[in-house]
Amino acid sequence: MLSYALRRLLFAVPALLFIALVLFALLELAPGDPMAQLPLTIPPEVRADMRAALGIGESAHIRFGKWLWQLFAVEPMALADRALGTDMAADSQRMISWQTRGPVMDTIIQRLPQTLWVVGMAYVVGVLIALPVGVISACRQHSVFDQAGTFVTMVGYSVPPFFSGVLAIVIFSVQLGWLPSIYDTTHQVTDWHSFTVQLRQMVLPVMVLSLQTTAQLSRYTRAAMLDSLHQDYVRTARAKGLSETAVVLGHGLRNSLIPVVTVIALGLPQVFGGAIITEQIFKVNGLGQLLITAIQAGDLPMVQTITFLLAVMVVLANIAADLTYGLLDPRIRQEGRP
């Protein structure tokens, strides 16, 4: 098992390097210009100088090398400096965003709190609703609850967030005036009152986002549950005269949890990716908004770094999912891989 885990981790290194190369090359090839958003009154010669000052003129392989060095050496050092108060990275050029002329990583770290609060909370809420809904739907297949649950989650899934978000704002912020439509990223939770303020401003974005998560996860849980309820050992358990609750929780749920947990783990990196549309509508300004504004502004260092970090998360989540799979299911451990 340990050697398997090590092998997976070792394999991840070349894979990540390959991903870094692909991302860099793809974004490099894309047309677009960080100067495109400037007013037309700024003459072309000045634009050319501005590009040169950003190092855009350098050839791609030099910038790729620099980027890798900054990503894997300078930025971790800067992070350590921040945490430990040292100054290892003081003299090195950090990764600089073309829009803000500030270090890319600082901005990314700045965006983490609101991303985790809103997108993460939406994920948690989604999971907490989806699991019971999925389990009950599966146990009472074809019942009214199952039918209604399926219908509601599907409707939730099929409404694009840019519509449900605006609809929620019009109803709850404009008509009823209950909840804020704009998320205040500078709000600090210090006491009970500020905590309720934080809760209130999270309600709408979390609601819109968790609609999507719930729909997908509850469908998946229901399917996994149905699958295990039809297995022979569940029939045996029933035949032995165990109570329905014991059958469902002890045999059905435990076994269907394996794939469900995997799916939940694999979805986690998406939390860090933010939710581009929902963030934009509620002005949460998390990582998703950072990514889309960087794309629109042609800010390559920012786009490359965010997408690469996302890729790292996904690769790690994949490994973690595989390993838990192995831990939970001895059959797989024998073969080495599911």
Binding site: P31, G32, D33, A36, Q37, L40, P44, R47, A297, G298
Partner: peptide
């Protein structure tokens, strides 16, 4: 797309 149209590349 505006970033290409006004991009001057």
């Amino acid at each position: 797309d505006a970033s290409v149209f006004f991009g001057g590349d």
